[in-house]
């Protein structure tokens, strides 16, 4: 299939591994899905310490389940990416370990306190869910299928995150203050979740033309603000003065983008932000420490059920 045909046919779940897709499509889809998969893993990495630090048995259970789900999402997404035939999961995980794999800006920032948990588990997950719901209509069928399961599970994550926030927001003065401080610090990063305005984003046009992506960065950011600014306010959080956000009527928002630190954003995005590099490297060390186990089980490539299944013909 040539690129022009792909653009003509591009619609929800239109293309599957049975289709002969042009390399340009397969590469663009791989880049997008790999980024998404990497983000699941690094998000889980960031949240993991709070399984241990959760302040009740039920919270600990929920946190463990949430981190488990994120790894599960990584599993689904790497499979969807692998189905494009460009890279294997192992190659993608190695790229993530080596600092070549890119992932969401928010997951580069270290998290230190429980008050930061809802910033990820409510706001960032809420933002992710806005985007993911639209990706159920992606033109790459395996990606859309992965989104079915991700969206099915993700409602728990967002509500769990909100529950943690609700408890802090109605807790002691100290907890309320910790929550506001965390919000002040994370809010600009959360807004940057959707990236810069479309004309600054390099990969958007082609992905939209071939139906991989359904909404623009601006549309998603607006949709996010529309739902989540009122949420923040309902828990007594004050929206920081910067970046300036203007409600332009009918739930539409305008963010003054120059108020955001895009130099930092692009440094982060290129995996060059120092604290984020520390996280990438320590994850790499953990991955390498169990190389021997993978060698042990992957040595049996001819066992039934191992990955050396015959290719579909």
């Amino acid at each position: 299939m040539d690129v022009e045909t792909v653009k003509e046919r591009a619609g929800p779940r239109e293309f599957s591994p049975a289709d002969d897709m042009p390399e340009k499509y397969r590469k663009a889809a791989t880049r997008m899905i790999q980024f998404h998969a990497n983000s699941e893993i690094m998000g889980a990495y960031l949240e993991k310490p709070f399984i241990r630090q959760a302040p009740s048995i039920d919270r600990k259970l929920a946190f463990s389940a949430k981190v488990q789900d994120e790894i599960g999402h990584g599993q689904l997404l790497y499979r969807a990416a692998e189905s494009l035939g460009i890279k294997t999961r192992e190659e993608m995980l190695d790229e993530l370990a080596n600092g070549e794999g890119k992932f969401l800006n928010c997951f580069h920032y270290p998290m230190e306190s429980w008050a930061e948990v809802p910033m990820i588990a409510f706001f960032v997950d809420g933002a992710a869910m806005r985007r993911q719901a639209t990706l159920k209509s992606s033109s790459w069928e395996p990606y859309a299928h992965a989104m079915d399961k991700v969206c099915f599970e993700e409602g728990f994550h967002v509500k769990h995150g909100e529950d943690i926030m609700a408890r802090m927001a109605t807790g002691s003065r100290k907890e309320q203050q910790m929550l506001q401080d965390a919000f002040d610090e994370w809010w600009p990063r959360i807004i940057q979740f959707f990236g810069p305005t479309d004309d600054k984003s390099t990969h958007h046009d082609f992905s939209a033309e071939v139906g991989l992506k359904q909404k623009t960065n601006d549309e998603l950011r607006n949709a996010f603000l529309d739902a989540y600014v009122p949420k923040a306010k309902s828990y007594g959080l004050e929206i920081p003065e910067y970046p300036r956000i203007e409600e332009v009527g009918d739930g539409e928002y305008h963010v003054e983008e120059d108020d955001l630190d895009w130099d930092e954003f692009f440094t982060v995005s290129k995996n060059e932000y120092e604290p984020g590099k520390g996280q990438i490297d320590s994850r790499k060390a953990a991955q390498e420490a169990v190389d021997w186990v993978r060698d042990t089980i992957e040595g049996d490539a001819n066992l039934p059920g191992s990955q050396a299944a015959p290719a579909a013909d």
Partner: peptide, 22 residues
Amino acid sequence: KSYRWAMAYTSSTEHAKEVIAS
């Protein structure tokens, strides 16, 4: 294992539409 389910969390009734769908 109800902690795994969205229904276990009742601190709010207003949610984004994709959260409700989930």
